[in-house]
């Protein structure tokens, strides 16, 4: 069912993929994935290791460009613009498609400079007060401001794991992204820090299209409105999260989410 391109949430489509394929040095990792991902909601990608979910996620900000031997085919649009077009600068694209990784990866800089880095290189702030405002706003949106406002000059790496992850989210937000990709953002965090990130994701979805890859099905169930199940490089099933977890249509989805042998 790779043409699972329906729109479960009836929200405007942000990301549209048609027959997206990826191969690494001739070995196909993703087979003809077609999917419509709505704006202002959270879409979870689930599936066993090696199923292609992270590969597909990496297509959305052209991170496969950086992998030698990687070939991406098919059409992938954000707001109708083809992102693999030669005219698209991947650096500019990555400002509008932010990425949060499994392990928090703050720059070896101060908390302030971590957030200010993007706005500076993209020329988003004309003055120091303007930059201060961008940094404060981003930290507030990431739910971190109250915890760090009195120590903005401290290194980002001095924060706890959960705080670092929120700092990285603030860094992504600071450049006004439209899409935020998260690749297992909580897998290195304890349950309380995880709950904070999940609460943050729920708040952020009001303004962003969020796509999260997670190995925790409970997390997918908790945070997402749509869930896509990948298996062996195919998009097997895509639909409202509630349906996927109560009544999956495909036996492979069923076996995976109930913890059975496929």
């Amino acid at each position: 069912m790779t043409d699972a391109s329906h729109n479960p949430a009836e929200l405007p489509i942000k990301v549209a993929a048609r027959d997206v394929t990826v191969s690494y040095s001739g070995k196909q990792a993703l087979h003809n994935v077609s999917i419509d991902i709505p704006d202002r909601s959270v879409t979870a990608f689930i599936g066993p290791s090696g199923c292609g979910k992270s590969t597909f996620l990496r297509c959305l900000n052209r991170m496969n460009d950086t992998i030698e031997g990687a070939k991406v085919g098919g059409s992938l649009t954000i707001d109708g613009r083809e992102i693999n077009d030669k005219s698209i600068d991947p650096v500019v694209l990555r400002a509008s498609v932010g990425m949060v990784f499994q392990k928090p990866n703050p720059f070896p800089k101060s908390i302030y400079d971590n957030v200010a880095y993007g706005p500076r290189i993209h020329g988003l702030a004309l003055s120091r007060p303007e930059l201060d405002e961008i940094v404060e706003n981003a930290l507030r949106k990431a739910g971190l401001w109250d915890e760090v406002s009195d120590r903005l000059a401290h290194p980002g790496t001095s924060l706890s794991g959960g705080q670092q992850q929120r700092l990285v989210i603030a860094r992504a937000i600071a450049v006004n992204p439209e899409v935020i990709l998260m690749d297992e953002p909580c897998s290195a965090l304890d349950p309380i820090a995880t709950a904070r990130i999940e609460e943050l994701i729920d708040e952020l979805r009001e303004n962003y299209c969020i796509i999260i890859v997670t190995h925790s099905m409970q997390q997918a169930a908790r945070v997402s409105q749509q869930t896509a199940f990948f298996h062996m490089g195919n998009l097997v099933e895509y639909g409202p999260t509630e349906d996927i977890f109560t009544n999956p249509r495909d036996s492979r989805t069923q076996d995976y989410i109930t913890g059975r042998f496929g």
Binding site: T258, G259, R260, F261
Partner: peptide
Amino acid sequence: MALSRTAHIV
């Protein structure tokens, strides 16, 4: 779909 008859991993 019918109930799965496949065994659980656990």
